[in-house]
Design a protein around this nucleic acid. Structure first.
Length: 1294
RNA sequence: GGGCGGAUAGCUCAGCGGUAGAGCGGCGCCCUUACAAGGCGAUGGUCACAGGUUCAAUCCCUGUUCCGCCCA
C-alpha cells in the first residue's frame, strides 16, 4: 500500500537530496570491499585543490565518475570511487601568503618556514572539508572511508620512496640547468607550467662594433637588456656576408666586454633579421644550447626577482623592463641603435601569477624522462591503456615523444620536501662561491651552499655522513612539484609502497576520468610512474572530458563574472550572490535546480566537442524532466489502490496491447542505454532514457493505460498497475546513475517487494527478451499513426480538445482495420473522438478534413468545425511535398546507372517508395477535389459576389466566403462589407452554426461596416490597395500579359471567382498555369476540368515535362509565394471583385498600413476586406511577417515597406473566413507579430516576390534567382509520407 | 611555424555514403482531473565555400575561408 499523498505536486529537490545522501552514508553503501569476490571496478577521483572549491568542471568530473561508479556498482561490481584532495603547492601557498599579508601584514619569511607551514595546515583544516561537502551535494558515491590527501602520511611515504628509488636508478638527478623561473613566485617551473602568449613587442637592431675594425655587426633582438649577459654573437656558417668575421670579436656595447663571433647553423637563420644573433646563454633556451655547443661562459645578469645583478654595473638593481628602457636609451645616445620594428613574439608566463617567466640558470632536481616515457608510449601502442575519445591518443604520443626531463624541484615551502640531505660538516659553505657561474642566493640555507653540496638522498634523514661521519644534516629546502605526488595517485592512494589488499584489489584502476587539459600534467605522468613502480598501467581506460564554458563558449573566470558555482545551481542562490552574467539571467535569484538536474544536464552535454557550453536553458529543461518523472510516478502511485507488485511474471498476466507495447519498448530502451554506457556514451544513454520516459512512457503509455485504470475491468486495472510499477522500477534503476536522488526517493515508494533496501544497490536492469514483443509494436503502429493523423487534423484546424469529433478511418489492409477496430478504445480518447468508423476505402465523407498515410486514410467529416479553406491549403502543401519527394526518387530511378549499380534492395526500396508516394498523392488530390468549391454552381457575376449583397447561393459558400474574407472588416469610410455567406447545401447546419458563432464575436454581423481608424502613430503607412496595385503592375500589369492564354485566364480570374468557371475554363486555366510553370495549380485545374466533363487531353507538359530550370525556379517561387502570402492571386482577385472594378487598387481596402497589417493591426486589414478570416488575420500576418521579414533593416522598415508585411496583409485579405473574433485575436497578437517582423530577413526579395504571387511567378523567377532558390530549399524537404507523423518522439517506437 | 578539433534548424549539438535529427526557443490551439516545470499540432535546414571520387556525398578525398585548442 502506498501513501500517495506523500508525493507533492512538484518535485522539490533540496529536501530530498539531503535526506537521501544521509541515508546512503548511514547504510555505508559507498564502501568498497577488499578483498572481494565481486569483480573490481575502481576510479580514483582527480584530487581537487584542498583549499579551493568545486567549480562546474569538477561537477562534470564528479557526474561522469559517479555515473560510472553507480552503474558498475549496480551491475555487480565491487566498485570503488576513491576521494581525495591535492595540496596544490603554489596555489595553496599563494593563497595563504596573501591571507597572511592581508590580515597580519606579514610575509612567510616573517613567520619562518615552520610557523608558516603550520598556518597552511590550519588553512587546510579549515577549508579542506569544503570539497567533500560539495561532492556530497552532488550525490557523489565516494568511499569516504578511503579519503586521501596528497600530503598525508602514506602519500608522503610514497613520494619519498619514489624519489629515492629514482635517484638510485639514476633517473633522478640534480643539475645546474637553464629552467623556467617565475620572478614573482620565486620558484622554478616545469615546461608545462609556463603558458605561452602571443604579444606585440618590438625587435631592435643594435650595432656591435667589430674589434679592431671600423665595421659593426648589427644584431636583431627582442630583449636588448640581456645584451649585458651576451657571451658571443653568432652568424650562419654559410652566410657569405660574414665569412671573414667568424672567429673575430666584437666589443659589447655598454659593457665593453669582448665576445667572440661564432658560426652556428642551428641558432642562426640567415634570412631572419640581419643574420646576426646575440648569444646570451644564461637567459635564453636557444642560446643556452648554443652556449653548451660552443662552451661559452654563462653569465647570469638577473636575480631571483628578475632585477639586474651587480655584474651589470650601472644597471644593477633595475627591474628587467626598466633596464630595457635604460639600455635602449643609452644605445640610442651612443648611436648604436639602428632601428626598432614592431614584432610579434611569444612570451612565456607563469600559470599562477601570469608574470613573464625568466629563463634562469640554477641547480634543480630533474627526472630523467626518456626511460620512463618509452614504456608509457608502448603501453598505449599496445592498447593496454585506451583513450576515449580516441583522438587524444595522438596528442599523447606527440607529447611523450618530445618530452624533456622534468624539473621537479620548487623553491616553495608547501609541499613534499625533497628527501635529500646535506652534511653540515663537509658540505661547501655559504660565501664560497668563487667558481659558481651564477648568483646563487636562493640555494644558500643554513650555512650550506646547496648549489655545490653533495646530496645524500634517503628515505629518512641519515645518522652519519658517509664521507666525513658528521652527524648533523640539513634537508634540501626545496619541495617537489605538486604533480610529482599526483603522478603516484593511482597507487599511493591504495597504500603503496605497502602491498595492501586495496592495492591488490583495485590496481590497475579501471578508468581515469579527467579533463583533457591535464593530459600531460597528470595523465602522462601517472602512466610513467605507474608503469615504472607497479609494473602495470595505472588505468585501463582514460576518458577525457571537455572543458565547461559558459553559454557563449567563454571560459569561466572570476574576472569575466561568468562563473557558475555548482552549489548555487543545486541549491539556488539569491541574486546578490550570483556572478554578474547570472544575475542578469536570474534577477530574482537562481532557483534550486537540484543535483539531479545538474548531473543530467552535464551528462547530456558530454557529447559535445572539446568545449561544453553550459546552457541554463538546458538545465531548466532537465529540471522539467525531473518533474516529469516525478509526476509520472505520482500518477502511478495515485492509481495503485491496494496493489503491490508480486513475483508473478508479467507475461502471465492478461496484458493489453499498450501493456505489451510499452514493455517491449522498455526492453529496447534498456538495451540501448546499456550499450551507450558501455561505450562511454553518457549523452546518448541520457537521451535514450529521456526519450523513453517522456515520449513513450508518459505521452503514450500513461495515456493509454488510463482506460484500464479508470475502467471497471479489474483484471485490466491490475495489469496496468503491474506494468506501471514494473516499468517505473526499471526506468528508475536505469536512470539512477544519472539522477541518484529522485530515483531513490520514488523507488522507495513503489508498491513492490524488494530484495535490497536501496536503489543504489539494486541491480542495473538487463533487457528481458521475453518481453520484447515485435507483434505488439507492429500492432501499435497503426493505432499511433491514426491518432497522430487525427491530431494533425485537429491541430491544423485549431479544434479545441473539448470538441469531440467523428472520424472515418479507412484502410485497404484488413489487418490494419481489424487492429484499429479492436483498439478503438485507444483511438477515441487520445484523438478526441466521439465516434469512429473504421472501414475499407470507399465512400469518403463530404466536406471533411483528411489525412493520408501509408495504408491509412483518415477523414474528419465536420465541415462546420473544420476550416476547409485551411484544409485545402494544407492538402495542397501536402501534395506538393509528396510530388517533390516522388520527383526526387523518380529522378534517381530514371538514371540507368543507379538501377544498374546500386544495391538491388536500395533500388527496390525506392521503387516501392515511388509507388507509395504516387498513391498518396492520388488520394490527397482526390480528397482535395472533393472538398474543392463546387464548380457546378451558377456563376456569380463578379460584381455580385463582391457587392455587399445579402445572400449568396449556398453552393457558392466557400468561394463566397473567401470573397467575404477579402472584404470583411472593410475600412474605406463609406464602404460596406458584404454579408457572411450562407452555408453550402451539404453542410448547412454546420455553417449556420459557424455563422452564429461568428456573429457572437463580431456583433457587427455580416454586413458590418467597420471604420478603419487610420493609425496615426503608425510609421510607414501603406495603402494595401495601392500596394496590391503596385504589385500587380510591377509584374507587368495583368492586362498586358503577353501570352494570350495567360491573359485569358487571368481575365477570367479577374472577372470573378473561379466558381464561375466551366470545366473548359478550368482546362484553359490549367494550360495557362502550365505555361507559367505552375504545375500544381495546373494539375488541379485539369482535374477539376475532367471532373466537370472536359475530356481533353492534358498537355504533355502537365505531366511533368516542364523540366526546364525555369520550371524549377517557378515552382520554387510558387512555393515561396504560397508560403509567404498564401494566395496573393486570390487576394488580387478578391480585391478586384470586391471593388467591382477591373483594377485591383479599387479594392475596398483603403490604405492599410502594412506594418499594422502585418503585425500590430492585422485585424485592421481585415476590417477593410470584410470577411477576413480570423486565421488570416492572426496567423498569416504574423507568420508571414515573422518568417522572413527583413530583419536587416529596422523592424519598422521591414514591416512597413518590404514584402512580408504586405504579403501578410494580402494574405489576410485573401483569406476568407468566418470572421469569428478574428480582429480580437489578431489584436492580441500584435506584439508577437511585431517582434516577428523584426526578426529574420533573408527572404526579403523572395517574400516580396511572393507577394506578387502566381501571376507574376514567371517574371519573378527570371528576375531573381537567389531568393527563389532559397525559398525552394526551405520548402523542399518533404515530409515523411507515412501514416504516422515524422515526429521525433514517435520515431523511436517505429 | 607545427599539430589537432570544429563549421548541420534561431540557439546548443547528434548524425557521417542511400528519404536531414534531438533538446531548447519561437508559432498556433488548449488551465483535458500525473505534470502549465504541462498537453496537442505546425513551422523551421544551398548540412561553411570550391573542386573531385561515386549510380548516389552533409557524410569519403583535395583545396579555400572562418572559429577554437595544443605544441614550439
Amino acid at each position: 500500500m502506498t501513501d500517495t499523498t506523500e508525493l507533492s505536486k512538484a518535485y522539490e529537490p533540496t529536501e530530498v537530496e539531503a535526506r537521501r545522501y544521509a541515508f546512503w552514508l548511514e547504510r555505508n553503501y559507498f564502501r568498497a570491499e577488499a578483498p572481494s569476490d565481486k569483480p573490481p571496478f575502481s576510479i580514483v577521483l582527480p584530487p581537487p585543490n584542498v583549499t579551493g572549491s568545486l567549480h562546474i568542471g569538477h561537477a562534470l568530473t564528479a557526474t561522469i565518475q559517479d555515473i560510472l561508479t553507480r552503474w558498475k556498482r549496480m551491475s555487480g561490481f565491487n566498485a570503488l570511487w576513491l576521494p581525495g584532495t591535492d595540496h596544490a603547492g603554489i596555489a595553496t601557498q599563494m593563497v595563504v601568503e596573501k591571507e597572511l599579508k592581508k590580515t597580519e601584514g606579514k610575509s612567510r619569511h616573517d613567520l619562518g618556514r615552520e610557523a608558516f607551514l603550520e598556518r597552511v595546515w590550519e588553512w587546510k583544516g579549515k577549508f579542506g572539508a569544503r570539497i567533500g561537502e560539495q561532492h556530497r551535494y552532488l550525490g557523489a558515491s565516494l568511499d569516504w572511508s578511503r579519503e586521501r590527501f596528497t600530503m598525508d602520511e602514506t602519500s608522503s611515504a610514497a613520494v619519498r620512496e619514489v624519489f629515492v628509488r629514482l635517484y638510485e636508478e639514476g633517473l633522478m638527478y640534480r643539475a645546474q640547468k637553464l629552467i623556467n623561473w617565475c620572478p614573482s613566485c620565486h620558484t622554478a617551473l616545469s615546461d608545462l607550467e609556463v603558458e605561452h602568449q602571443e604579444k606585440n613587442g618590438s625587435i631592435w637592431h643594435i650595432r656591435y662594433p667589430v674589434k679592431d675594425t671600423d665595421r659593426t655587426l648589427t644584431v636583431a633582438t627582442t630583449r636588448p637588456e640581456t645584451m649585458l649577459g651576451d657571451t658571443a654573437v653568432a652568424v650562419h656558417p654559410e652566410d657569405e656576408r660574414y665569412q671573414d668575421l667568424i672567429g673575430k670579436h666584437v666589443v659589447l656595447p655598454l659593457s665593453g666586454r669582448e665576445i667572440p663571433i661564432i658560426a652556428d647553423a642551428e641558432l642562426v637563420d640567415p634570412k631572419f633579421g640581419t643574420g646576426v644573433v646575440k648569444v646570451t646563454p644564461a637567459h635564453d633556451f636557444n642560446d643556452y644550447q648554443t652556449g653548451l655547443r660552443h662552451q661559452l661562459p654563462m653569465l647570469s645578469i638577473l636575480d631571483e626577482s628578475a632585477r639586474m645583478t651587480k655584474e651589470t654595473g650601472k644597471y644593477a638593481g633595475l627591474d628587467r623592463f626598466e633596464a630595457r628602457k635604460q639600455v635602449l636609451a643609452d644605445l640610442q645616445e651612443q648611436g648604436l641603435l639602428e632601428k626598432e620594428e614592431p614584432h610579434k613574439l611569444s612570451v612565456g608566463t607563469c600559470q599562477r601569477s601570469t608574470t613573464v617567466v625568466e629563463p634562469r640558470l640554477s641547480p634543480q632536481w630533474f627526472v630523467k624522462i626518456e626511460p620512463l616515457a618509452k614504456p608509457a608510449i608502448e603501453a598505449v601502442e599496445q592498447g593496454r591503456t585506451k583513450f576515449v575519445p580516441e583522438s587524444w591518443t595522438n596528442t599523447y604520443f606527440h607529447w611523450m615523444r618530445n618530452i624533456h626531463d622534468w624539473c621537479v624541484s620548487r623553491q616553495l615551502w608547501w609541499g613534499h620536501q625533497i628527501p635529500a640531505y646535506y652534511c653540515t660538516a663537509c658540505s661547501p659553505r655559504q660565501g664560497d662561491d668563487s667558481d659558481l657561474p651564477l648568483d646563487a642566493a636562493t640555494v644558500k640555507v643554513g650555512g650550506v651552499d646547496f648549489a655545490r653540496a653533495e646530496p645524500i638522498v634517503a628515505r629518512e634523514q641519515p645518522t652519519s655522513c658517509p664521507k666525513c661521519g658528521g652527524a648533523t644534516f640539513i634537508q634540501d629546502p626545496d619541495v617537489l612539484d605538486t604533480w610529482f605526488s599526483s603522478a603516484l595517485w593511482p597507487f599511493s592512494t591504495l597504500g603503496w609502497p605497502r602491498n595492501t589488499p586495496d592495492l591488490q584489489t583495485f590496481y590497475p584502476t579501471s578508468v581515469m576520468e579527467t579533463g583533457h587539459d591535464i593530459i600531460f600534467f597528470w595523465v602522462a605522468r601517472m602512466m610513467m610512474m605507474g608503469l615504472h613502480f607497479m609494473g602495470d598501467v595505472p588505468f585501463r581506460t582514460v576518458y577525457l572530458h571537455a572543458m565547461v564554458r559558459d553559454e557563449k563558449g567563454e571560459k569561466m573566470s572570476k574576472t569575466k563574472g561568468n562563473v557558475i558555482d555548482p552549489l548555487d545551481v543545486i541549491l539556488g542562490a539569491s541574486s546578490d550572490k550570483l556572478a554578474p552574467t547570472l544575475k542578469n539571467k536570474f534577477p530574482q535569484g537562481m532557483p534550486a535546480f537540484g543535483a539531479d538536474a545538474l548531473r543530467f544536464t552535464l551528462a547530456s552535454l558530454t557529447q559535445q566537442g572539446r568545449d561544453i557550453k553550459l546552457s541554463m536553458d538546458r538545465l531548466a529543461g532537465y529540471k522539467a524532466f525531473c518533474n516529469k518523472l516525478w509526476n509520472a510516478s505520482r500518477f502511478a502511485l495515485m492509481n495503485m489502490g491496494e496493489f503491490t507488485l508480486d513475483e508473478r511474471p508479467l507475461k502471465e498476466r492478461p496484458l493489453t496491447l499498450a501493456d505489451r507495447w510499452i514493455l517491449s519498448r522498455l526492453q529496447r530502451a534498456t538495451t540501448e542505454a546499456r550499450a551507450s554506457l558501455e561505450t562511454y556514451g553518457f549523452a546518448e544513454a541520457a537521451s535514450t532514457l529521456y526519450q523513453f520516459l517522456w515520449a513513450e512512457f508518459c505521452d503514450w503509455y500513461i495515456e493509454l493505460a488510463k482506460g484500464s485504470l479508470y475502467g471497471t475491468d479489474e483484471q485490466a486495472k491490475d495489469s496496468a498497475r503491474a506494468v506501471l510499477v514494473y516499468s517505473l522500477d526499471r526506468i528508475l534503476r536505469l536512470l539512477h546513475p544519472f539522477m541518484p536522488f529522485i530515483t531513490e526517493e520514488i523507488w522507495q515508494k513503489l508498491p513492490m517487494s524488494r530484495s535490497v533496501d536501496s536503489i543504489m544497490i539494486a541491480s542495473y536492469p538487463e533487457p528481458d527478451a521475453d518481453l520484447v514483443d515485435e507483434a505488439a509494436e507492429a500492432e501499435m503502429a497503426p493505432v499511433i499513426a491514426s491518432i497522430e493523423g487525427l491530431r494533425t487534423i485537429r491541430g491544423e484546424s485549431n479544434l479545441s480538445p473539448a470538441t469531440k469529433v467523428k472520424a472515418v478511418v479507412q484502410s485497404p489492409d484488413a489487418r490494419t482495420r481489424e487492429l484499429l477496430e479492436r483498439w478503438r478504445a485507444y483511438l477515441m480518447p487520445l484523438a478526441g473522438l466521439s465516434e469512429v468508423e473504421i472501414g475499407a476505402p470507399g465512400t469518403k465523407p463530404p466536406q471533411a478534413a483528411a489525412f493520408v498515410g501509408t495504408n491509412l486514410e483518415i477523414y474528419v467529416p465536420l465541415a462546420g468545425l473544420i476550416d476547409l479553406d485551411a484544409e485545402r491549403d494544407r492538402l495542397r502543401k501536402e501534395i506538393a511535398r509528396t510530388e517533390q519527394e516522388a520527383a526526387g526518387v523518380l529522378r534517381k530511378l530514371e538514371n540507368p546507372n543507379f538501377v544498374a549499380k546500386a544495391p538491388p534492395d536500395v533500388v527496390e526500396k525506392d521503387r516501392a517508395r515511388v509507388e507509395e508516394l504516387k498513391e498518396r498523392k492520388a488520394k490527397l488530390q482526390d480528397h482535395l477535389q472533393r472538398i474543392a468549391p463546387e464548380p457546378a454552381m451558377p456563376a456569380a457575376p463578379p460584381s455580385e459576389s463582391s457587392t455587399p449583397t445579402q445572400s449568396v447561393e449556398p453552393a457558392e459558400a466557400d468561394i463566397a466566403t473567401e470573397a467575404d474574407v477579402a472584404t470583411e472588416p472593410s475600412t474605406p469610410p463609406g464602404s460596406v462589407a458584404p454579408l457572411e455567406t450562407p452555408p453550402p447545401a451539404e453542410g448547412g447546419a454546420e455553417y449556420e452554426t459557424l455563422a452564429e458563432s461568428t456573429e457572437e464575436e463580431e456583433p457587427a454581423a455580416a454586413p458590418a461596416e467597420v471604420k478603419v481608424a487610420p493609425d496615426a502613430e503608425a510609421e510607414g503607412n501603406v495603402d494595401l490597395a495601392e500596394e496590391l496595385k503596385d504589385e500587380f503592375e510591377a509584374v507587368g500589369g495583368v492586362p498586358e500579359a503577353a501570352d494570350p492564354q495567360v491573359q485569358d485566364a487571368l481575365e477570367k480570374l479577374r472577372a470573378g471567382t473561379k466558381e464561375g468557371l466551366s470545366p473548359a475554363d478550368h482546362h484553359d486555366l490549367g494550360v495557362a498555369y502550365m505555361s507559367m510553370g505552375l504545375v500544381d495549380d495546373a494539375m488541379r485545374e485539369f482535374n477539376t476540368a475532367r471532373a466537370g466533363g472536359d475530356a481533353r487531353e492534358v498537355p504533355a507538359a502537365a505531366e511533368q515535362t516542364v523540366a526546364s530550370t525555369a520550371k524549377a525556379v517557378v515552382k520554387a517561387t510558387l512555393a515561396a509565394v504560397k508560403k509567404a502570402s498564401s494566395i496573393a492571386k486570390d487576394a488580387v482577385v478578391e480585391a478586384v471583385s470586391a471593388s467591382g472594378e477591373d483594377e485591383a487598387p479599387a479594392a475596398p481596402v483603403k490604405a492599410r498600413p502594412a506594418k499594422k497589417a502585418a503585425g500590430k493591426k492585422a485585424p485592421a486589414a481585415a476590417k477593410k476586406a470584410p470577411a477576413l478570416k480570423a486565421k488570416g488575420a492572426k496567423g498569416a500576418a504574423k507568420k508571414a511577417a515573422a518568417k522572413k521579414a527583413p530583419a536587416k533593416g529596422a523592424a519598422k522598415k521591414a514591416a512597413a515597406k518590404k514584402a512580408p508585411a504586405k504579403a501578410a496583409a494580402k494574405k489576410s485579405a485573401a483569406k476568407k473566413a468566418p470572421a469569428k473574433g478574428a480582429a480580437k485575436k489578431a489584436a492580441a497578437k500584435k506584439a508577437a507579430a511585431k517582434k516577428a517582423a523584426a526578426k529574420k530577413a533573408p527572404a526579403k526579395v523572395a517574400a516580396k516576390k511572393a507577394a506578387m504571387k502566381k501571376g507574376a511567378a514567371k517574371k519573378v523567377a527570371a528576375a531573381s534567382k537567389k531568393p527563389v532558390k532559397k525559398a525552394a530549399g526551405r520548402k523542399a524537404p518533404a515530409k515523411k509520407g507515412t501514416g504516422a507523423k515524422p515526429k521525433a518522439r514517435a520515431k523511436a517506437r517505429r
